[in-house]
Simulated scan of single mutants.
Amino acid sequence: MKIVVSGGGTGGHIYPALALIREIKKQQKDCTFLYIGTQQGLESKLVPRENIPFKSIHITGFKRKLSFENIKTIVRFLKGVQESKKILKEFGADVVIGTGGYVCGPVVYAAAKLGIPTIIHEQNSVPGLTNKFLSKYVDKIAVCFEEAKNYFPKQKTILTGNPRASEVLNQDGEKGLRSVGLDPHRATVLIVGGSRGARPINEAVLKVMSELGEKPYQVLYVTGDVHYEKVSEEIRLIGNPANVVIKPFVHNMPEVLAGVDLTVARAGATTLAELTALGIPSILIPSPYVTNNHQEKNARALVSHGAAEILLEKDLSGKSLVSMIDSILLDNEKLHSMKTAAKKQGIQDAADRLFHLIKQLTKKN
């Protein structure tokens, strides 16, 4: 089977695609893959590292306001469709999967027009413009949140979950905590603002560093590479408590996640898929700077099931953050209840579900 995958722009679109490819390779070794992205996107760096054949097309996203740039984008889209048709024909694609980002637009649309089976995968609770557009043309729509079903044609839409979730399972949490200098037998909270970090979260944590040092739990505080030097300067002035480990980035995050009891994080779809797969309660601080405010909607979907608590950035302070951490981590009954609720929201076999969908579509053809 020849499978084309397209997704780009952010890790939230790319990591699920790579996780799906890895899982399919395990299950069916005779599958061949081609990844179509943009040369400017993160996918142009991440995909070749996985030894997956990569081709690029030139495309840009639509502006939400009327502008002359959107006319150029339409022209690029039409050119991208023609480029994509040529690539798909040369590769002999049996199925095309779009995991999000504007690059999927011309690729998946071209496949639909060629009569190739198509699937889009929506990671968020609220879909972006590209997937809304493609939903009219594709054969199947895979979603990660029940709430996302409301935006798509009912007969096409299936809850599959996020393939990235399966990659955090079966990890050695004790080994993960030891690798970052933490005690695996002590209650642990992970505070992380994403791969690049988040300045408002860092500022809040720094204000209560001394207070965190007096807590019975331990803290892994991941600043993000961009902010690490500035945070380190502040720590030199105020001191680094023995129970707080500060890192710029954690390369073995799936292994570390498996050992933590509570996570403070943004509310990106991939993060939530990992947390729910492992049944980790969370305090979610949604980024207010994302399209359609989808992170807050992602967070509220988990909050409504009792799996997380939300702390809006406008309400974030050191005091409010520590208070919320204490209210969960120091209350065994609440912690257990949130763990159970988080686990119920997790879909651990997402990659299997998607592969089953692929096989169903290709059999029909």
Rank of each mutant, 00 (worst) to 15 (best):
M1V: 08
K2R: 15
K2S: 07
V5W: 00
G7F: 09
G9I: 03
G9C: 02
T10A: 05
A17G: 13
L18C: 07
L18M: 08
I21L: 07
E23V: 00
K25N: 03
Q28H: 10
K29L: 05
T32K: 12
L34V: 10
Y35F: 13
Y35Q: 02
Q40N: 11
L42V: 11
E43H: 04
E50P: 10
H58G: 01
H58C: 05
R64D: 08
K65G: 04
K65C: 07
S67H: 08
F68K: 12
F68V: 13
T73K: 04
Q82N: 15
Q82S: 14
E83V: 05
K85I: 11
V96H: 03
A111C: 10
K113C: 14
K113H: 15
G115C: 08
I120M: 12
Q123A: 14
Q123G: 14
T130K: 04
N131R: 04
K132Q: 15
D139W: 06
N150G: 12
Y151H: 13
F152M: 11
F152S: 11
K154D: 10
K154N: 08
G161K: 00
N162I: 00
P163S: 04
P163L: 00
V168R: 01
E174T: 10
G176T: 09
R178Q: 13
V189N: 05
R196E: 11
I201F: 10
I201R: 09
V208Q: 09
M209P: 06
E211I: 10
E211P: 00
L212W: 00
E214K: 14
Y217K: 07
Q218D: 06
K230E: 15
K230A: 15
V231M: 07
S232Q: 14
E233L: 14
I235W: 02
G239T: 09
G239K: 03
N243T: 02
K247V: 09
V256S: 06
L257N: 04
L262G: 12
A267T: 07
L272W: 02
G279T: 01
I280D: 05
P281T: 12
L284V: 08
S287P: 03
V290L: 08
N293F: 07
H294D: 07
Q295L: 07
K297C: 04
S304I: 03
H305K: 15
A307Y: 01
I310S: 07
L311N: 10
L316E: 13
M324A: 12
I325N: 09
D331E: 14
E333Q: 15
K334D: 11
K334E: 10
H336Y: 09
M338E: 06
T340N: 15
K344N: 14
Q345D: 04
Q345M: 15
H356T: 13
K364V: 12
